[in-house]
């Protein structure tokens, strides 16, 4: 009764190419390339100028970090809306440290920002794990609470570039072989997170939890611990993003990073991370972040009026979700058809 039908195995190169082209991320990548090419044809300085190439790589770096953290959380069927506020607090902390101790080596300030972010992520994770309240509600609360603390702390004051050491500010714009430090850092985090999610047991467990939380519990996976860790990582990355924000812009007010959380969610969704968890990659989320910010800069060049820009972003999000839905329906039809035909 055993009819072992081993699937036809094409050559590894071909199948590798095929899996790249059919990957969900590839479509987003194509869209990004299209936007860049179109903008460059209109105005060559979009890429072929010192500022152009720098902005292309530098601008998305901070959002890429947030999008990576957000993707990790969304994969577990949760969401972290507090990342913008965490970024703000971390940026302000870093500025304040330099005001209080001007001679401090800047790596310590970076560490402080990351640790603060992790701590705030820990608060999110603990509330969600202990109170068993949906992450949407908890992080909506901490979105306001963290921002409130920031306003209370900063008042109307702001940290200016003059308050921070030059070597720290240089981080925000310096380049290595033409590539900004910030972009390299974001890429390093991306590679590490991508590798982790694909190759380590705990990374795969995040997908399992998001795919079916009840099954994950029955299976005996450490659901609470993993979700908790996902929020700590998301917080730490938002903390790191806050440090980079201070270095890049040189000015930090109590409103730094407000609204970034929605961009981070949008980047993940556009990049193919399913909003109900279980599928998607940080690579997609990162490309989504780059696409989101690049479109913002490209639309004026392409002659799209300013007030249409947000509508375009909205269209992109809805388009991404519809595409996901269509792909999912097609896949389940195909699987069903296989089952009918194959049995």
């Amino acid at each position: 009764m055993s009819v072992a039908s081993s699937a036809r195995r094409p050559s590894p190169v071909l199948s590798g190419l095929r899996s790249v082209v059919t990957a969900r991320e590839f479509g987003i990548f194509l869209a990004l390339a299209l936007v860049i090419v179109a903008a460059t044809v209109r105005n060559p300085s979009f890429v072929f100028s010192n500022d152009g190439s720098r902005d292309l790589l530098l601008t998305p770096a901070i959002l890429v970090l947030l999008a990576i953290g957000q993707a990790i959380v969304i994969i577990t069927r949760n969401v972290d809306l507090s990342v913008g506020s965490i970024l703000g607090l971390s940026a302000y902390l870093v500025g304040s440290i330099f005001v209080a101790a001007p001679g401090l080596p800047y790596p310590l300030a970076i560490l402080a920002g990351v640790l603060l972010g992790a701590l705030l992520g820990l608060v999110n994770g603990a509330l969600i794990a202990i109170a068993k309240v949906p992450a949407l509600v908890i992080t909506l609360g901490t979105l306001y609470a963290f921002r409130g603390i920031n306003v209370l702390w900063a008042g109307g004051d702001r940290i200016n570039a003059g308050d921070m050491p030059d070597d720290f500010l240089a981080l925000g714009t310096a380049r290595l072989l033409g590539v900004p430090y910030l972009s390299l850092l974001a890429l390093a985090v991306l590679v590490a997170a991508g590798w982790y999610l694909r190759n380590l047991r705990s990374g795969r467990e995040l997908y399992a939890i998001g795919s079916d939380p009840a099954a994950a519990n029955l299976y005996g996976l450490p659901v609470t611990r993993r979700v908790f860790a996902a929020f700590v990582v998301s917080g730490a990355l938002a903390g790191l993003a806050g440090v980079l924000y201070a270095a890049r812009y040189g000015t930090v007010s109590s409103q730094a990073g407000s609204g970034f959380e929605l961009n981070a969610v949008a980047a993940a969704v556009i990049g193919g991370v399913a909003i109900f968890g279980g599928s998607g990659t940080v690579w997609g989320a990162a490309i989504g972040a780059v696409l989101l910010l690049t479109i913002n800069r490209a639309l004026p060049i392409l002659g799209v009026p300013a007030f249409w820009q947000r509508a375009v972003v909205g269209g992109l999000i809805i388009g991404a979700i519809i595409l996901d839905r269509v792909l999912a329906v097609r896949q389940s039809r195909r699987l069903l058809a296989e089952r009918e035909g194959g049995s």
Binding site: R201, R204, E205, Y207, A208, G210, S211, D212, A215, A216, Y219, G220, L221, A274, G278, S279
Partner: peptide, 14 residues
């Protein structure tokens, strides 16, 4: 089972 994951991953998860 975890619907999004492959059959192999489902067997060996964890």
């Amino acid at each position: 089972l975890f619907p999004d994951l492959s059959v192999t991953e489902n067997i060996f998860m964890g």
